[in-house]
């Protein structure tokens, strides 16, 4: 389907750009063009951020060098939650407006989100050993992060278990939406249940309680992780598009040259 044929549908002109995202061929071209450059930017930012964080930034006066894991931990934890919300949103869009590309975006995000959640848990527990004296405590944030991992696994398991891909996308979209409503509830219930995790340091209102030399690498790593996420989603999306649209003309043209 070409974008021209969609343009004739007579909607307001400012929505014309939006229609392109409904066209798998166009999105494939878009993902193909941008996945690599964004990945390179992410890589550069990783190098700069890690250099700043591991070599330039001073050790913490209490935790020594062990605090440096936050440069991985905090961006992972952020992306674990962010990716769940993006996944649920795009799955919901796919469910309501029957946009195939949107379903595929959700499907591409799921394993990445699970990976970030896993990273956040592992780095958190590695940091916990020297700081709290144990790898794992049943603290509120750790627990809700663990539940988040279970939600991702449930989503992936459900969408893999259903053979028909349309049904799989739609069913797992419902699960993602139920999960996204539940996530804040789970978070707060776990928070009231038990809390040991230190409070937010970066987003604290007023002055953040962190040294600028530590804050800058953290922010760089944060941006780097987001770029990496974007590039990885686009890359996965390319594969998903090719496999879903394998019977169409445009995929044949790409595959056979």
């Amino acid at each position: 389907m070409t974008t021209e044929s969609l343009n004739t549908s007579g909607r307001g002109k400012k929505w014309l750009w939006f229609h392109r995202f409904g066209s798998p061929a166009w999105v494939y071209g878009f993902a193909n063009r941008w996945a690599m450059p964004i990945g390179i930017v992410a890589l550069l930012l990783f190098v700069v951020g890690l250099y700043q964080g591991l070599i330039v930034a001073p050790p913490d006066y209490q935790m020594g060098d062990s605090y440096r894991i936050i440069f991985i931990h905090v961006p992972s934890a952020w992306l674990s939650m962010f990716s769940y919300f993006v996944m649920a949103a795009s799955a919901g869009i796919g469910l309501v407006w029957h946009i195939k590309v949107s379903d595929l975006v959700a499907r591409s995000i799921a394993p990445l989100g699970a990976m970030f959640t896993f990273c956040a848990l592992v780095t958190g527990s590695l940091w916990g050993k020297p700081t709290w004296g144990t790898y794992w405590v049943w603290d509120a944030r750790l627990t809700s992060e663990l539940v988040l991992l279970f939600l991702f696994i449930g989503y992936i398991a459900l969408s893999n278990a259903i053979e028909d891909r349309r049904t799989a996308s739609r069913a797992s979209a419902v699960l993602a939406l139920v999960g996204v409503i539940n996530l804040p509830i789970i978070h707060f219930s776990v928070e009231w249940w038990n809390t040991l995790h230190q409070g937010s340091t970066v987003t604290k209102l007023g002055r953040p309680s962190i040294d600028t030399r530590m804050l800058i690498p953290l922010l760089i790593m944060f941006v780097a992780f987001n770029f990496y996420f974007l590039s990885a989603v686009l890359n996965r999306l390319r594969c998903e598009l090719l496999s879903q649209e394998r019977r169409t003309q445009w995929v044949r043209e790409i595959v056979h040259g």
Binding site: F150, V178, G179, N182, I186, S189, V190, W192, W193
Partner: peptide, 13 residues
Amino acid sequence: LVILPLYVPVLIF
């Protein structure tokens, strides 16, 4: 797998 994580609040309270 799908249901148990959603049961967490009920269990806690």
